[in-house]
């Protein structure tokens, strides 16, 4: 499945700020909980994982790939993208984060193509820069869903 099949336009958000990183994780996962893709405990699992493993899912300065294991309350594979204008930091990390890509993977396979598209965007300086400075939700949505593996 391509990213456009696993990322709803309404689940791409640009917000001004978060209270702290826990608030950020709650906001980033909120819609997926409301829509039934994940259980509320998946949000808790991401927070626990961040504490236990020093937010290893910060992939590069600016970007966090929020995720936990499939068995922590994932009902169906889905992604969301949340851009926070005011950067924040995870506990123990010295990189600012603006962009959160939330991955709820129900199994090891169904999200692979979608994540490859995410990696294409983040792996190129020009597109990474666009992802970290989006002008609109359209910008973000198109940037990621149009990426070619």
């Amino acid at each position: 499945m391509e990213l456009k099949d696993l990322l709803k336009y309404e689940n791409v958000e640009i917000i001004d700020s978060v209270k702290d990183w826990r608030d950020a994780v709650a906001i980033a996962t909120r819609k997926l909980v409301e829509q039934g893709y994940i259980e509320p405990r998946y949000t808790d699992a991401i927070i626990e994982s961040a504490i236990e493993h020093n937010a290893y899912f910060v992939l590069c300065p600016g970007v966090a790939l929020l995720h936990a294991s499939s068995d922590k309350g994932v009902n169906e594979t889905q992604l969301s993208i949340t851009y926070v204008k005011e950067p924040f930091r995870f506990e123990g990390k010295d990189e600012d984060v603006n962009l959160m890509i939330t991955l709820a993977a129900a199994d090891g396979e169904s999200h692979m193509q979608a994540i490859q598209q995410v990696a294409i965007v983040l792996g190129d300086d020009e597109t990474l820069n666009k992802a970290l400075n989006p002008e609109s939700v359209d910008d973000l949505y198109n940037l990621f869903t149009e990426a070619q593996v």
């Binding site: 290893y56 992939l59 790939l65 692979m112 994540i115 990696a119 792996g123």
Partner: peptide
């Protein structure tokens, strides 16, 4: 290798 084996390690593997 990453913690969950789903996201970070997949991206790392591609690169």
């Amino acid at each position: 290798v990453c913690q969950a084996g789903l996201g970070s390690s997949l991206i790392l593997g591609m690169n």
